[in-house]
C-alpha cells in the first residue's frame, strides 16, 4: 500500500497490481547491498591477511628457498644451516600421529554414534569429556606427555613420545568430526541395510563408514594440520633444536619444523631470520599438500542423498 502514497495512484486495485508488478526496487535492496559489501569485506580481510602472510614469508625467505634448505642439517653457521632433520622430524611425528589417531578416533566415534546407549551415565560422561578435552590448551598436553609418556612410561624424549602426545592432543577433534560425519548418514540407509538381513557391523562397515569418509577425512586433516604446527607441547617434551641426524625410528630423538623455526627466529643473526621465513614456507607447502589429499579423498568418496 505504500506504493499508493508514493506514486499517487488512487484506485486500490491498480495500486495492488503495480505493487505486485514492481519486482525491482525497494528498501530491501539497500540492506542487501550492505550485506553483500559486508560479506565481501570479511572475505577480503581474510584473504588479504593470508596473501600478505605468504608474500611476506616468500620475500623474506627467498634467498634461502632452495634445496639446500632441506638437504642440510642445522648449524651454528647460518650459511650452512638447513632444516632437513626438522622437515623429516615433522613428517615422522605427524605420520605416526595420523597412524594412531585415525583408527582410535574413528573407532571411538563409531562406538559413540552406533553402539553406545546414550541413556547410560558413562556414555554421557565420555561425551562430555571429549567436548571438554578438545578445548584444553596444547601446552597442558605437553605437561601431560612429559609426565605420563616421557617420564612415567619411560619412553624418553623420542619420536614415539611426541606422536603419542600429539595423538592425545588431536584425538578429541577427530572424534568430534568423525561423529558429525557418521551422524550425517541418514537413518534410512541403516534401516535399508538392516532390513536386508545385514548385521549392525556389516551396516557400519559397508554403508555408514564409506558414506562418512569425506567428513572424516576433512576432520582428520584439520586435526593433523593443527598437530604439524604445534611447537609448545613438543618443546616441553624435549624436542631438540640442534639435531644433526634424521629420525631413524620411533625411538630416535627428534626436532620438528615449528621448533626449528622458533629457534632460528630467536637467534641474534639476521641470516637466521631469513632461514626461519624459508622454513615457514616449507611448513605451509606441507600443509597445502595435506589439504589437497583431503580434497582428493573427499572428491573420490563424494556422496549425496
Amino acid at each position: 500500500m505504500s506504493t499508493t502514497q508514493t506514486t499517487g495512484v488512487e484506485d486500490p486495485a491498480v495500486a495492488e497490481a503495480t505493487s505486485h508488478a514492481d519486482l525491482t526496487a525497494g528498501q530491501r535492496s539497500i540492506k542487501d547491498v550492505l550485506f553483500y559489501v559486508g560479506m565481501l569485506a570479511s572475505l577480503g580481510i581474510a584473504f588479504t591477511a593470508l596473501v600478505a602472510l605468504i608474500a611476506l614469508m616468500l620475500v623474506q625467505g627467498w634467498p634461502r628457498l632452495n634445496l639446500d634448505l632441506i638437504t642440510h642439517f642445522p648449524s651454528s653457521i647460518p650459511a650452512r644451516a638447513g632444516a632437513e632433520s626438522a622437515v623429516l622430524g615433522s613428517i615422522w611425528v605427524v605420520g605416526f600421529t595420523a597412524l594412531f589417531t585415525i583408527p582410535l578416533g574413528v573407532a571411538a566415534a563409531v562406538y559413540l554414534e552406533e553402539f553406545a546407549d546414550k541413556q547410560r551415565w558413562y556414555n554421557r560422561l565420555i561425551e562430555l569429556n571429549i567436548q571438554n578435552l578438545a578445548a584444553v590448551p596444547s601446552i597442558v598436553y605437553g605437561i601431560l606427555g612429559l609426565g605420563l609418556i616421557v617420564q612415567a612410561a619411560g619412553l624418553g624424549q623420542v619420536v614415539l613420545a611426541a606422536s603419542l602426545t600429539l595423538t592425545l592432543l588431536v584425538l578429541p577433534t577427530v572424534i568430534i568430526a568423525a561423529r558429525e560425519a557418521i551422524r550425517a548418514v541418514p537413518d534410512s540407509i541403516r534401516a535399508g541395510s538392516l532390513a536386508l538381513g545385514a548385521t549392525q557391523w556389516q551396516t557400519v562397515w559397508r554403508q555408514v563408514l564409506p558414506a562418512s569418509v569425506p567428513g572424516i577425512a576433512t576432520g582428520v586433516i584439520l586435526a593433523l594440520s593443527r598437530a604439524i604446527g604445534e611447537a609448545a607441547p613438543l618443546v616441553l617434551l624435549g624436542g631438540l633444536t640442534f639435531i644433526q641426524f634424521n629420525p631413524s625410528g620411533l625411538d630416535s630423538p627428534f626436532t620438528v619444523l615449528p621448533i626449528q623455526i622458533f629457534n632460528w627466529v630467536s637467534r641474534p643473526q639476521d641470516e637466521f631470520e631469513v632461514l626461519a621465513a624459508a622454513a615457514g614456507v616449507v611448513l605451509l607447502v606441507i600443509l597445502l599438500a595435506m589439504n589437497s589429499i583431503a580434497i582428493l579423498v573427499r572428491n573420490r568418496f563424494q556422496r549425496r542423498w
Binding site: 541418514p186 534410512s188 540407509i189 534401516a191 535399508g192 541395510s193 538392516l194 532390513a195 536386508l196 538381513g197 554403508q207 558414506a211 556422496r303 549425496r304 542423498w305
Partner: peptide, 16 residues
C-alpha cells in the same frame, strides 16, 4: 528373520 521377511520403505532409500 529379516533375510526371509524383507521390507520396502515409504521413501525410496537406495544406498549411495
Amino acid at each position: 528373520v529379516r533375510r526371509s521377511i524383507g521390507m520396502v520403505f515409504q521413501k525410496p532409500n537406495p544406498f549411495p
